[in-house]
């Protein structure tokens, strides 16, 4: 098997609270390989959000190691993490998180601005990805002119624009109706079929069923890690 995109070992995170140190994550080991499609599940407070923040290089762990594309990022400085988020990761959020004042094309191109890429290249890349998610004709519209599902597609295009090694999706269908959710999940399926590695967080079993592998968190630990059955549906619950 190829080298893992992500390998975490003994990853732990504690928060200072009024009641003392609260361990949100207590020693997690996980490896994500290129082409993986993993759903992370678990109830609120299980540590899955903390885990996602660590995977997304938005936070640094209290203990343990996190290798992203072979590099240990556990103790990197903030700006180095920003560069990683820009070049190696793509984010898709529950609330879409497009910038309201920018056209869809500019939204998609924004990561390239921070990568220091020239204007023409940015435009072309953004345009190509908008076409890919089927929204090329809205390139010059503002986000509030399109539906939630369409906004999420734009967000996915933005996540892809820097050709990341990994897409992190945090409840990507949480704000969408079931029909639109299916469309988004189909898009993720297609992207994964093209070889893009995806890690998504969800608490809905039927969303998780789209993934190839399901990892379950409880009380800051992984309690199960299994491949999804071939037929999407019931038994993965």
């Amino acid at each position: 098997m190829a080298d893992p995109v992500i390998r975490v070992a003994g990853l732990a995170k504690s928060y200072e609270t009024a009641a003392g140190l609260f361990p949100a994550l207590r020693g997690v080991d996980l490896a994500v390989y290129p082409g993986d499609y993993i759903a992370i599940m678990g109830p609120s407070g299980s540590g899955k959000s903390t885990f996602m923040n660590l995977l997304g290089c938005l936070d640094t762990p209290s203990a343990g190691d996190y290798f992203l594309a072979g590099e240990n990022v556990a103790h990197m400085a903030k700006d180095a993490l920003a560069v990683l988020r820009n070049r190696t990761l793509g984010f898709v959020f529950q609330g879409f998180n497009l910038l309201p004042r920018m056209t869809l094309q500019d939204n998609v191109a924004l990561p390239l601005v921070y990568a220091g890429i020239g204007k023409e290249t940015r435009r072309a890349a953004a345009r190509e990805l908008l076409d890919k998610v089927g929204l090329g004709k809205y390139a010059d519209s503002l986000p509030n002119r399109i539906s939630g599902g369409q906004q999420q597609r734009v967000a996915i295009a933005r996540a892809l624009v820097n050709k990341p090694q990994l897409i992190l999706a945090d409840e990507p269908t949480g704000n969408l109706d079931s029909h639109t959710s299916d469309e988004i999940m189909r898009l993720f399926g297609e992207l994964n079929a093209e070889g893009i590695t995806i890690v998504l967080v969800t608490h809905e079993p039927d969303i998780a069923a789209h993934a190839k592998r399901q990892v379950r968190f409880l009380d800051g630990e992984i309690v199960s890690d299994q491949l999804t059955a071939v037929v999407p549906g019931g038994e993965a619950c």
């Binding site: 903030k78 920003a82 820009n86 984010f91 959020f93 910038l99 921070y114």
Partner: peptide, 16 residues
Amino acid sequence: TREIGIRMAIGARQKD
């Protein structure tokens, strides 16, 4: 604040 968070998530450094 939220816009700043989004920008940071997609790779804006502090100096950006």
